[in-house]
Simulated assay, not measured.
Amino acid sequence: MPRSAPFQQHHRRYDDWFEHHAAAYYSELLAVRALLPWHGRGLSIGVGTRRFAAPLGVRLGIDPARAMLSYAARRGVIVVQGVAETLPFADASFDYILSVTTICFVEDARAMMAEAHRVLKRDGKLVIGFIDRGSTLGREYLEHQNKNAFYREASFFSVDEVEQLLFATGFNKMLWVQTLVGCLSEVYAIEPLREGHGEAAFVVVRASCF
């Protein structure tokens, strides 16, 4: 089964998650906002229902799941159906790229980052948000992975693995922030942003293209 299939089949359930876990969602959103550039032409890889791209002002998004793109289009994004490993854009087309909780669902994470590097301008920024596999929440997802329609096909990454992939595909100057300490069921309020990584589940890294 393609890793995008659950998002095509359960698109309403996916979008509803952000309403049912509003405190966690806004914690993640603020963490991404802290590292996302304010200006320039941006692209959202794995735009989904545009829960991150819309409030952060990213006008263009790509996703393989057509049902997800219908949500994004209604929320004002220009949508393209496609995959992260083969982006249908010219070299050096973007000032920054946003990718939130997408890396664990692509078929080839290294190819995704290589493509991001190709379409970014020199010194462009790649901002990736993901669940750290070694965190409390990451271990919880792994423990129940086979019972979750979305994470059944996912490949979770550690911070070290993401860092190695970034270096291997031509990125440097990495900045890290994190949020969500403990289990998701214990998040009742927006959590403060922390620098670095290793203490919280949701990690955001901004890397420069060189």
Rank of each mutant, 00 (worst) to 15 (best):
D132T: 12
H10P: 00
E140Q: 15
L56V: 12
R133W: 05
R75E: 02
I97C: 06
A73K: 01
L56S: 08
Q81S: 06
F18N: 08
V77P: 06
T49A: 07
G46N: 00
L35M: 11
S44R: 02
I103R: 01
V106W: 05
I45H: 03
R41G: 05
F89L: 09
H39S: 13
T86N: 13
L29Y: 11
D91S: 09
V83K: 03
R110P: 04
Y14I: 01
F94V: 12
Y14P: 00
V119F: 01
Y25M: 11
I62G: 01
I45W: 02
E28G: 10
E140T: 15
R12C: 02
L126M: 13
M112R: 03
R12K: 15
A114L: 15
A24V: 11
A65T: 01
K121H: 11
L120P: 02
R122M: 14
G76Y: 07
S27A: 03
A22M: 14
F18Y: 15
H21R: 06
H11A: 06
G129W: 07
S44Y: 00
H20Y: 13
M68C: 02
V100Q: 01
H10L: 07
A109S: 14
R51P: 00
E19P: 07
A73T: 00
A23P: 04
E107P: 10
A34V: 12
A92G: 12
S70V: 05
E28Y: 06
I103D: 13
S135C: 09
A67Q: 15
R12V: 02
Q81F: 02
C104L: 13
F105P: 03
D132S: 14
H11P: 00
M113T: 09
V79H: 05
L120H: 04
F94M: 13
T49D: 04
Y14Q: 01
M113S: 09
F89E: 09
A54E: 14
F94C: 06
R12T: 04
A65Q: 00
E19V: 09
A53N: 06
A53D: 05
A34Y: 15
Y26W: 10
P37A: 01
L30M: 10
D15F: 07
K121C: 11
D63P: 08
G57W: 07
G76V: 01
R13T: 11
F18D: 09
E19T: 11
V83H: 01
M112Q: 07
L126H: 06
R118T: 14
R66A: 12
A84C: 12
L137K: 06
G82R: 00
H117Q: 15
Y26G: 02
L120C: 08
R110S: 10
P55D: 14
T101L: 09
C104Q: 13
S93D: 10
W17S: 05
H21N: 14
G42R: 00
Y26A: 08
I103V: 15
A31S: 12
E85M: 02
L36M: 10
